[in-house]
């Protein structure tokens, strides 16, 4: 993908890493920017998809409703 089409650039990666208190050597930033750009594009698509379903919360029901986890 051409740099101009990118949402995430090296400067942004540097800033985000600083916010996360993560030392990220300058030579690692281009590859991280490219990978993050692709992954966040996908993650943003999930965000937009879920915009239509504000009724759904984040609690994943792993079990049957009639199963209680703490019986012992």
């Amino acid at each position: 993908m051409a740099d101009a089409e990118r949402t995430v650039d090296e400067a942004m990666v540097e800033q985000l890493a600083r916010l996360a208190e993560l030392e990220l050597a300058p030579e690692r930033r281009p590859a991280i920017a490219e990978q993050l750009d692709g992954l966040l594009r996908e993650a943003n698509a999930v965000n937009r998809f879920m915009d239509a379903r504000r009724d759904v919360g984040p609690g994943v029901r792993y079990h049957h409703p009639d199963v209680r986890d703490d019986e012992s």
Binding site: L36, P58, R61
Partner: peptide
């Protein structure tokens, strides 16, 4: 590289993905 990328995600991305799981 994946761990470094993971440090830079937003909390909302994670929450939206967890909401999708419920759906």
């Amino acid at each position: 590289a994946l761990l470094e990328v993971g440090e830079l995600y937003l909390a909302t991305h994670y929450i939206q993905a967890q909401r999708y799981r419920t759906l």
